[in-house]
Write a protein that binds this DNA or RNA. Structure first.
Lengths: 183, 183
DNA sequence: GCCACCATGTAACACGTTACATGATTTG
DNA sequence: CAAATCATGTAACGTGTTACATGGTGGC
């Protein structure tokens, strides 16, 4: 998914500035789709505007640069919906954590411990984010469904980490002992 | 994770050619870490060799270009292990499927149905891949642990899709009906 | 007969990130 | 008082993809 489509997707849920789009895409609910930085978002928004898929209104502010609030147009909405109808790309899961886990026997137990803690913290944070807006105004059928999907996945992940984390540390400890004994 | 590290990671599990590395990274067990294409793998391997982190031996073949089999060196192994000890990046999950689900109320039921089927097929395929090598020679403690982690996650995903898939289709159908009634 | 698989490699191209430029306000 | 947050934007840079070039073998 390109930054262009990402902007359209976020704007289809409401007006936003480039700054806000970046936040949503790196931390917020839209981080499941793609994340992007300022350097790609601002040019993308400018192009969307010249293509007539979004409109801008400037809101001057004292001290700060004027906020440029973008709104999606009918044409933008149509392009967005059409893009969703095209054959979807595969979901991907990229896990630096699993690479560490895979090599547990070659790493110091301390590294494994840290990696587990970090991953648990991440999952907790994602769960917090998902349950947070459960009582908010942002409730429509699609978002309820996806939220519950996310919660189900994260809960299992967390349970697995908590139940089997010690076993992973043990792998590292055992092989460290064997190395020490061989010397 | 760069293609360079990816190559090192795969080679730390055994010798391979550039062609094989691409397969492992796009389809095989290493697709959880990153995937890369020929255009990035071949240059990366050449650089790794000139840096002394891998060695090559050519195996001539009739008709085809000679296979260039790469092996990791001690220096390569050290760099790989060290890279795993550095603070890990966060795991990421990118889901074109969830974007479709989120917008279920704006899409034709047929699109939702297709998206669900496609996602289910993907999860089935991942489960097949994970359970496949359960009885194989590729069994060491780290890979057992990560495999079981993967299986646990995929099973929940699949169960959720099977239990709640109909509800998602219903969201699309209901809103399509409302649109029709309004006309 | 055509397509997929094996097998390597290069060059043009697209895309996105990082760092820079600017600067007020709030929070610890 | 320093750091984070809000707020926009550009330019250099890095990295990776796509398409091309080449060509034999085996399955449908």
């Amino acid at each position: 998914m390109s930054v262009r489509s990402l902007c359209l997707a976020i704007l289809s849920f409401g007006d936003a500035t480039g700054y806000e789009i970046r936040k949503e895409s790196t931390e917020g609910r839209f981080s499941y789709f793609d994340d992007a930085s300022f350097g790609s978002i601002y040019p993308a928004l400018a192009r969307l505007e010249s293509d007539g898929l979004v409109t801008v209104r400037e809101e001057p502010q004292a001290g700060k640069p004027a906020r440029k609030v973008y709104s999606i147009t009918e044409a933008g909405r149509t392009e967005f919906i059409n893009s969703l109808c095209e054959p979807q790309a595969a979901d991907t899961f990229k896990s630096p954590f699993l690479l560490i886990a895979l090599n547990a026997a070659q790493l110091p137990p301390e590294v494994i411990r840290r990696a587990l803690e970090r991953r648990k913290a991440q999952v907790h944070e994602e769960l917090r984010l998902l349950t947070e807006c459960e009582n908010e105004e942002c409730r429509h059928p699609g978002s309820d469904w996806t939220r519950n999907y996310g919660i189900a996945c994260m809960n299992v992940t967390l349970a697995y980490l908590e139940e089997h984390g010690e076993a992973l540390i043990k792998i590292a400890e055992d092989s460290a002992e064997q190395l020490a004994a061989a010397e």
